[in-house]
Structure formats: C-alpha cells, structure tokens
Design a binder for these strands. Structure first.
Lengths: 217, 217
DNA sequence: GTCTATAGCCTGATAGAC
DNA sequence: GTCTATCAGGCTATAGAC
C-alpha cells in the first residue's frame, strides 16, 4: 500500500476543511457574506451541506475562518523594512512582493477588499489593533529616511496606500483589467511587466533611482 | 401657498424614486446584490416594501437602475484628453478629477468596485462595449505623446490603471484609510493633500514636471 | 464521521382594500 | 397611488438514522 493511501489521523478532516475553506472563499467573493449560501459552498466543495455545519459550526464561524486565513497570509507576506535599509531597495522589494502576492492570491485579496468596502463589519478590530501598528512602524521608518536626507520628503502614509492600491488593483479588478486588455487570463509576463512598471514609476515618483536602472548604468 | 408646496406632476414620484435609489445604493454596497433585501432598502428609504416593487418592478431591475446611474456619472466625469494637450497638464487634470470624484461619490465608487470584484455579472457588457473604447482612445493619445518625444516611454494602459486604482482607493477603502489614519471622516484638507501627492508622485514617476512645480519655479 | 429530513425563519413578489 | 396581508420558495441550522 502506497504512502499516499495509508491512514493518517485527521487527514480526511484536514482535506475536507481545506476544500470547504477554498469553496467558501470563492462563494463569499462572488455573492458577498449574506448572499453566499451554505448549500452553494457545500456544492462547490463536493460535500453535503450538513458536513459544512459539522466542520464549521455556523456561517459566521466559517466566514471568520476564511478571513483569519487571509490575515495570516497578509501578515506572513508583509516584508520587513528597517531604517538601515537602502530606501530604493526596500521599496522596490515591497512593491514586487505585493505584486507577486496579488497575482498569486487574487481571491484572498478580493475577499479582503469586499469586507473593507462593505464597511469592515468583521475586520474592524484587525484594522485598529494589528494593521494600524504595522503601518505606523513603516511610517516611522520612512520618516527616518526623510530625516536623514535619503528620501525626498513625502507623506509616508499616502505612499504606502499608493503601493497597496496600485498593486492590489490587478487582483481585485482582475475582471476589468482582463476585459479592457482583451485577455482571458494573466500570463507570467504580465506579473513581471506590472512589477517593473509599478516599481519604476513609484520609485521615480519619490525621487529615487530604481535598483534595476542602477545595475544597468 | 409657497412654491415648494405647490403641486407638481410627478414630484412625489421623483422624490420617492430618488430616495429608493439612494437607499438601494447603500444597501447593495453593505450587503452585496444577493445579501441586500427589498425590505432593508424600503426601511432605509422610509417607505413600505410594496412601494419599492411599485416603482422598480423587481430587485434585478432596481439594481440595474442603480448601476445605470453610476455609469452615467462615470461617463460624464471622464475628462477629455487630446494629443494636442500638454501631457503634464492633461494628466494632472485627470488625476485631480478622479480624486475629486472619489471623495464626492464614494458610495458609487464602492458599488462599482463590488460589482467588478464579484466578477461583473451585471456590467460585463459595459466593460467590453463602452469602457474599453474609452480606454483605447486614451491609450492612443498617450502613445502619440510618447512618439512625439513629449513623454518618457511607458505602458499607457498601466498608467491609466495606476491613476484609477490610486485615486479610487480613498473611496473604496475609506473604512481602512480612516481606521489607519485614526480619523472619523475625511476633511476638505485631505482631498487637496491626496490630489497634490498623487499628481506630483505619478507625474514625476512618468518623467514629467508637475504643473504646480513649474508655476513656482 | 456522514448524510437525509425537516423545523423555523425570512425572502421576493403580488393581490386587493383603500 | 398607497399600503396591509399573504403566498410560495429558499435560507440556516439541527435532529437523528446510518
């Protein structure tokens, strides 16, 4: 008997939970929290509706689990920047990381966006307690760069929002971008083009020389 | 009897329709299309549910009416740019117009965003038939500027998306921005600051000199 | 652990009195 | 034109057989 088929305690449980979470993410993005149905989520996961209630006690609990997973993903992907870093290299890395994440996890980005646009009824605490601290720390780093004369004065907060919005756009507004570009789906080339364009434009906009330019001349 | 109270044919009808449309816009943003209820919309408009069905035959019809109003608003606000314009002045005006619209009509922007994020089930035709033509025309103008050597080469399409995403962010992610900035609501100062920051950063990022800078020196 | 059957509620929509 | 009363259907959630 192969390794893959041998019994592992909790294996089926884990697999079912993961497929329910993935199905729920899709349904919540397409229909919103109230619009999504437990039946629709169960159908998409290929399980009876009662099993969804068995693994996740109720709809609110399931939604919260999906959001928790996204928040964990966000926190893990937030690149560290410190005042010792070179501003151009740190911001370039920040932009590229966000672009990569947007193209890799578009549904997570979309669900997060829907939650915020709806007024963040389930994520208000996260914004105030966790995300605000993260932003404040980055603002402090950018302010230090400015004080040291290594970065043209700007409003650090607006710079962070600019990077977030410009990168997330390709995930959240995927439908619009694909329709306007007359494409069926993104290519690997698109990820690089977008990262290159945004890093170059935003860094230049801040008065910095993009790392790639320096390498070539 | 004052002018305001004198009978006007269809006045009550118009007022009721407008208050229903405004209430529906809010409910659809908060709950999504399926999540919003005719009862909730009626309550917010201060009318019995049956009246909502009287003015707008059914839920799909009401939603489409709300979207039509937004699309009309969008089309009216799209500033014209032509190849004869100075690139810096035209792009500066474009950015400022979008910022103004985002702060003036945040709910319209949010509902449009929700519809796109959900996969544009009701707006797919608009994207393909109307918006694509608008974008293609602007791309052609920007390409002309580049060919004439008046603008550093860039991908016009990505530049338009950058301007859209960066400006809309303050409407769509209003809840997040206010939470992170620790504010209750936007001030008039914020509109100017955002317009100034985005115009300066994006134009500089494209290798242009922002109009304000030229005026001052 | 899995799934069928069903309870209890709320929805969109309409009929019909005023 | 307005609004109360009501219907048929779909929803979340659970009970209980397997």
């Amino acid at each position: 008997m192969s390794e893959a088929l041998r019994y592992k305690p909790g294996r089926i449980r884990d697999e079912n939970q993961q497929s329910i979470l993935a199905a729920a993410e899709q349904e919540f993005v397409r229909q919103g929290y109230r619009g999504a149905t437990m039946q629709g989520i169960a159908d998409r996961a290929g399980l009876p509706k009662a099993n969804v209630h068995y693994y996740f006690k109720n709809k609110a609990n399931l939604y919260r689990s999906v959001l928790d997973r996204i928040v964990t993903l966000w926190n893990a992907a937030f690149s560290e920047i410190s005042a010792d870093d070179d501003p151009a290299i740190a911001l370039d890395r920040f932009v590229r990381e966000k672009v990569r994440l947007s193209f890799a996890q578009p549904r997570a980005s979309k669900l997060f966006a829907m939650e915020i646009i709806s007024g963040a009824p389930h994520l208000g605490d996260y914004l105030r307690d966790e995300l605000r601290g993260w932003v404040d720390a980055r603002v402090a780093v950018i302010d230090t760069w400015i004080a040291q004369g290594r970065l043209t004065p700007c409003e650090p907060r607006r710079l962070i929002y600019l990077i977030w919005s410009a990168t997330q756009h390709y995930a959240d507004f995927e439908t619009q971008v694909l329709a306007l570009d007359d494409k069926i789906e993104y290519s690997a080339q698109d990820v690089n083009d977008v990262a290159e364009f945004l890093s170059r434009t935003i860094l230049t906009g801040c008065g910095l020389t993009p790392p790639a330019d320096r390498a070539h001349g």
